[in-house]
């Protein structure tokens, strides 16, 4: 068996009715692949891994993998994840959200999870569009870009997930893309291992909804765009103006669940 086949057997649900919902060329599957490879590389017991997903194409990935999986409500994944982690700090809780999920309807939860520094890994699959609902503008859609609800080009300035998470106090903040699978794997493992709240943004193509409206004729063009328009954060710091990828914040504040355990300890009646 090839390594990939082994991973498929080990981590995909056998009793789940495939095929999956992702369109041909969708980048979400690449991020899911990276997630599975990372869990495998870190040798996390499957029973301990909890995937908490929002609603969107990205959120659908939870159902395919053989972990504890919770497909929540649009925007609310982090609130469930917070409850799960606080109730059982032993678990590896990984949140999967779209850009609409994490930055729009769930934007408040994102900044508060960061402020609280809850020990959860937040994956933001940013395809710059509402994929599932048919290609409407999202808070990550670049100014001027086309969507079903910005037929004359978006007028609004998008959020930068990395800046937002950094400012809100997340312990670990990183960005990669579904073109850079090796970097994505590396950052994914770091994000999962890092104590406290970590945010990993994956820029990822949605050929069906975003590509179609923004003059990407072929799926490959979208991956090439990611290749050409991103640069390692180190080079970006030297003045390159392309989208930086890599690690942007690396703090070691203790996670909320650790501070809570200390509080509980201190309140124990002394003998």
């Amino acid at each position: 068996m090839s390594d990939v086949t082994k991973l498929i057997h080990e981590y995909l649900r056998h009793n789940k009715k495939f095929p999956h919902v992702f369109c041909a060329g969708c980048g979400h599957g690449i991020v899911l692949g990276s997630l599975v490879r990372s869990v495998h590389a870190l040798q996390l017991p499957k029973d301990n891994v909890v995937i908490v997903a929002g609603i969107g194409c990205s959120g659908r990935m939870a159902v395919y993998v053989d972990f504890n999986t919770v497909h929540t409500a649009h925007g609310r994944a982090l609130t469930f994840a917070t409850g799960i982690k606080m109730a059982n700090p032993e678990l590896n809780v990984i949140c999967v959200m779209g850009d609409g999920d994490a930055l729009s309807i769930g934007g408040n939860h994102l900044i508060h999870a960061a402020r609280r520094n809850i020990g959860v890994t937040a994956l933001v699959l940013n395809n710059q569009i509402y994929g599932m609902t048919g290609g409407q503008c999202s808070p990550a859609t670049p100014q001027g870009d086309m969507s079903m609800t910005s037929p004359y080009g978006s007028l609004e300035q998008p959020f930068d997930t990395v800046d937002l998470a950094k400012a809100a106090g997340a312990n670990y903040v990183a960005r990669s893309t579904s073109f850079h699978a090796n970097q994505l794997d590396k950052l994914m493992q770091e994000a999962i291992l890092h104590p406290g709240f970590s945010v990993l943004e994956a820029l990822t193509p949605c050929p069906t909804q975003y590509g179609r409206k923004n003059k990407f004729r072929h799926v490959v063009d979208m991956y090439n765009w990611l290749k050409k328009n991103t640069v390692k954060v180190e080079k970006w710091k030297e003045g390159d103006s392309r989208i930086p990828t890599g690690v942007f914040q690396n703090l070691d504040r203790p996670g909320l669940e650790e501070r809570y355990a200390e509080l509980r300890q201190s309140l124990q009646p002394q003998e």
Binding site: V52, V70, T72, A73, R76, L78, T79, F80, A81, T82, G83, I84, M86, A87, N88, L91, N108, H109, H112
Partner: peptide, 16 residues
């Protein structure tokens, strides 16, 4: 941070 989040956290805890 709000009542929606409170519900989410409580349901998450219930699932554990």
């Amino acid at each position: 941070e709000d009542e929606i989040a409170s519900m989410g956290a409580a349901i998450g805890a219930s699932l554990t």
